[in-house]
Simulated scan of single mutants.
Amino acid sequence: MVGARRSNDWGFPRWRSYGSEQAATAQRTCDRHLCDEPGLCPAPKASNSPDRWYFCQKHAAEYNSKWDYFEGLDKAEAAERAANEQRDNSGYAEASHYGWAGSGDGSRSSDEMRALAVLELEADVEFEAIKKAFRAKAKLVHPDVKPGDKEAATQFQAIQVAYEVLKQAEDRREWKG
Rank of each mutant, 00 (worst) to 15 (best):
R87T: 13
H59R: 10
G148Q: 06
K137C: 03
I159C: 04
H33I: 13
P147F: 06
A95D: 11
Y63Q: 06
A158Y: 03
A101W: 12
Q155N: 12
W15A: 12
A158G: 04
Q57T: 10
R81K: 11
A101I: 15
A79F: 00
K132E: 14
A129Q: 15
A95Q: 14
V141D: 05
E37S: 12
A82R: 15
A101F: 10
L140S: 14
S47L: 11
R52E: 13
G91K: 12
H97D: 13
L121M: 07
G104L: 06
E126L: 15
A152V: 02
W15R: 07
C30M: 15
A115Q: 04
S17V: 04
I130N: 00
A129D: 14
S96P: 01
H59Q: 06
G148A: 03
E174R: 14
L166R: 01
K66E: 13
Q57K: 14
V141E: 01
A123S: 15
E151G: 04
E151A: 10
G148Y: 05
A162T: 05
F156R: 02
E112A: 05
S90K: 09
G104R: 06
V125R: 02
A117Q: 15
E21C: 02
S20E: 11
E122F: 07
R135D: 09
A60Y: 09
R87K: 12
Q22D: 13
K75E: 15
A83L: 10
I159M: 02
S109A: 09
G19W: 00
Y18L: 08
D36P: 08
G148E: 03
K150I: 11
V145Q: 10
E62G: 02
E120A: 12
W67T: 05
S7L: 13
L40D: 09
E62Y: 01
M1F: 11
Y92P: 05
E164H: 04
